[in-house]
Design a protein around this nucleic acid. Structure first.
Length: 554
RNA sequence: GCCCCAGUAGCUCAGUGGAUAGAGCACUUCUCUCCUAAAGAAGGUGUCGUAGGUUCGAUUCCUAUCUGGGGCACCA
């Protein structure tokens, strides 16, 4: 019996109580939450519900009395060993061992899909994250969003949403020109221009340009700039893609800002088209020679300039056109993962959404995250401690880095501690979790060598306290994935895995799976082997959601 | 000035309105002739920043306030 089944059972019972109570016509059960919780305290049973407290007042009774009526019905059901009233009106449900053990076969039958659901089915979600300028390598500042975004995309998909993950490439505008000038200078061995990009990688890109273009120095300056910009851009972008690939981060769409500036056959480009759309909606006005959008109508601090008095579109214009493009390409919900230093963005984005006739509160989800520290030191160019993603991967490995970045809520400050991430103890949770998986695999391998099979699965034999705990954890997994998806909080999966593997390790120490010595294999051994395998499966599924490998040996 | 985020154990941090607020680390002890000891067991910590409010019930929601971080361009 799983939480979903208990939930519908509770709902059924409540409905019949409501139906038989006079003057309860306005009571709406649809809004109530019937999903039981896993109590912290084992003495409170396997599952607990607070619905009696939610409804007592509305039914003109007190919580304990209502709970009594509900428990009387509950115990009539097969699989429920006990249903008790506790405290102010909690209902504590204890399952019999067979009903609790049924989760094992459910997990094994579902395999990789255990934990997936359809709760977000029909949602079309666009997720934009990282979106670093293609003018330099990815560094620590980008890695948190890469890890979090990719994990969230996986979690949302597991909940049934249609997700497009997207990287916006700022390949137009002043930063690109600056980049081009810097690379040209490097290729010609000239000093870095004022306001140019520093860094060794610029020199390397200059070398790439010289290799690609014969007699680069002989070209006219305009051609040099054009070639240097283009070649360095392509090179840098492909390096970014490589880094993200090594980081196990996938993007479905690489969206080039340039495509919105260009047009075919004299048609207006996407940015101009977006402007006329906004103008038709009546949100655009002209003042001081510039073109403005009245974003204050939609809660922004101040109106924003769309096209400057010199005719050049602002960055905001590209953002607006890009936003509309996401809608046009079929996404209802747009998720943005932004650093705290960009949260000023959000007001503008919501204003665009409102101006386009959407509901900003529903169509935009802005996840604002705190920046990452390294060994306690703030990251800054001045301090010279910008660390490239590639270096971090080399130093710490993809698994440790991704796990660490995924286990904290985005809005929580986060510090990377190199020593800790390299350590192989409880200090470093990724090893703890991965080790548990390796253990499950080792048990399964040994079972094969002693000829233990899974045929005699007998769930009612799983009666040890540590078994009951472990079963409860396995049962919880789908709830955790669903909550992580609905709250956009992938870190819940990581935290859950730490609890699950702790339960596994305790069980492992208390309940031996394999027969010892000359002992003949029994149904208990077989049943425990199944529990071992089910745990293994759930650890794998969870690690996959956060993009971390599940090693078979360590 | 306005806006966003954080404040929970000595440290790093969990905690979608519920029962005695939890992990890990650090400290002290135990447990491997037998499935991976990268593990497990035992030992004690809290004015949940402060003050009000909302209700059966608040670390969680609201208001005020203190402290720390970040943000408020015809920059990109």
């Amino acid at each position: 019996m799983n939480p979903a089944q208990i939930s519908s059972l509770l709902k059924e019972i409540m409905q019949s109580i409501v139906d038989s109570t006079p003057d309860s016509g306005e009571l709406n059960l649809a809004d109530a939450n019937f999903t039981p919780e896993r109590p912290k305290n084992r003495a409170h049973g396997d599952w607990a519900s607070n619905i009696a407290m939610q409804f007592a007042k509305k039914l003109g009774t007190n919580p304990r009395e209502l709970a009594g009526a509900i428990t009387a019905e509950l115990v009539k059901n097969e699989g429920i060993a006990k249903a008790e009233i506790a405290g102010p009106g909690f209902i504590n449900i204890t399952l019999d061992a067979a009903a609790a053990g049924a989760v094992v076969s459910a997990v094994l039958a579902a395999g990789d899909s255990y934990g997936t659901s359809e709760i977000l089915a029909g949602r079309r979600i666009n997720m934009e994250f990282v979106s670093a300028n293609p003018t330099g390598p990815l560094h620590l500042g980008h890695t948190r969003w890469a890890a979090l975004g990719d994990s969230l995309a996986r979690v949302l998909r597991a909940a049934g949403a249609a997700v497009v993950s997207e990287y916006y490439i700022n390949d137009a505008g002043e930063q690109m020109r600056k980049f081009g000038r810097s690379v040209r200078a490097a290729a010609l061995r000239l000093p870095t221009p004022e306001d140019g990009y520093p860094g060794e990688y610029i020199g390397e890109l200059g070398a790439v340009v010289n290799t690609a273009v014969l007699d680069f120095a002989q070209l006219a300056e305009a051609d040099q700039l054009a070639q240097a910009t283009e070649i360095a851009y392509q090179q840098q972008l492909s390096e970014i893609k490589d880094s993200l690939k090594r980081f196990n981060v996938n993007f479905d769409v690489w969206f080039s800002e340039r495509t919105m500036h260009s047009s075919e056959n004299g048609e207006p480009n996407a940015i101009a088209t977006a402007l006329s759309r906004l103008r038709e909606q009546g949100h655009v006005y002209d003042a001081d020679g510039a073109v403005w959008v009245r974003t204050t109508d939609f809660g922004d601090d101040k109106d924003r300039v769309y096209q400057r008095s010199n005719g050049i579109y602002t960055y905001f214009a590209a953002d607006a056109a890009y936003y509309l493009s996401k809608t046009d390409r079929g996404s209802d919900i747009k998720i943005y993962l932004l650093g705290a230093d960009h949260h000023g963005y959000v007001g503008r984005l919501k204003a665009i959404s409102g101006a386009a006739g959407e509901d900003p509160e529903k169509n935009i989800i802005a996840l604002i995250g705190q920046l990452v520290n390294l060994n306690g030191a703030r990251l800054s160019k001045r301090a010279g401690n910008i660390v490239e993603l590639n270096d971090l991967l080399e130093w710490l490995g993809c698994d440790a880095l991704r796990y660490w970045l995924a286990r904290y809520p985005a809005d929580s400050p986060l510090s990377l501690d190199g020593e800790k991430l390299r350590s192989r103890t409880n200090d470093n949770p990724v090893f703890y979790v991965q080790y548990a998986h390796a253990r499950t695999q080792s048990v399964a391998r040994n079972a094969a060598t002693v000829g233990l099979t899974r045929a005699d699965f007998t769930p009612e034999l799983l009666t040890h306290e540590t078994e009951s705990n472990l079963l409860g954890k396995l049962q919880e997994y789908p709830l955790v994935v669903a909550a992580a998806a609905q709250l956009y909080e992938p870190h819940r999966v990581a935290r859950y895995l730490e609890e699950l593997t702790a339960a596994y390790h305790r069980w492992y120490d208390n309940c031996r799976v394999l027969p010892q010595g000359d002992e003949a294999p029994s149904a208990l051994h077989a049943t425990r082997l199944c529990l071992n395998d089910a745990t293994s499966q759930v650890i794998r599924n969870g690690l996959n959601l956060i993009g971390v490998s599940a090693p078979e040996r360590m």
